[in-house]
Design a protein around this nucleic acid. Structure first.
Length: 136
DNA sequence: GCCAACGTTGGC
DNA sequence: GCCAACGTTGGC
């Protein structure tokens, strides 16, 4: 059974469109231990929301882990983890942070509780709630 | 651009 | 091993 995640990226550094253009992207540059543990816990086929931070502040698309458990190629120490992801689909309607905060069912999600965590875990229930919001 | 939250570093 | 200082992240 796949797990669910949310990955943040600043769109002016690496946006959803950049990932789509690349077809497959390496999710590297994470330098936070909690985020690293989440990256290490990912498996091939896991589903990830692609969230735009700093600008946009919304979930824009869904991608899937295509390669799990690799070392961060941008890290010379060999201590940091990375995964590869492939874009799956763009959301019909982006789900903004504002909407997420306004939804009681999402009040406890890692994205809201740990706002600075760049790779957050999403429960299946939360995933479903956000997917419903993206279609509404 | 500001600032709060949080992680890391380094002096003791 | 504690904690103050500092740097970074990310919402506003």
């Amino acid at each position: 059974m796949p797990q669910y995640w949310l990955m943040k990226s600043e769109p002016f550094k690496y946006s959803w469109d950049d990932l789509v253009a690349e077809t497959e992207g390496v999710w590297d540059g994470v330098r936070n231990h909690s985020a690293k543990l989440n990256l290490r816990a990912m498996g091939v086929g896991d589903q990830c929301f692609f969230y735009h931070s700093r600008e946009g502040l919304e979930i824009v698309g869904i991608c899937e882990v295509s390669v799990a458990g690799i070392l961060d190629p941008t890290d010379e120490t060999g201590k940091w983890a990375a995964v590869k992801v492939k874009p799956m689909r763009k959301l019909a309607k982006p789900v903004s942070l504002k909407q997420i905060k306004a939804e009681p069912k999402l009040a406890d999600c890692e994205l809201v509780r740990l706002s600075r965590l760049s790779v957050a875990k999403i429960t299946p229930e939360e995933w479903q709630v956000i997917c419903d919001m993206a279609e509404g």
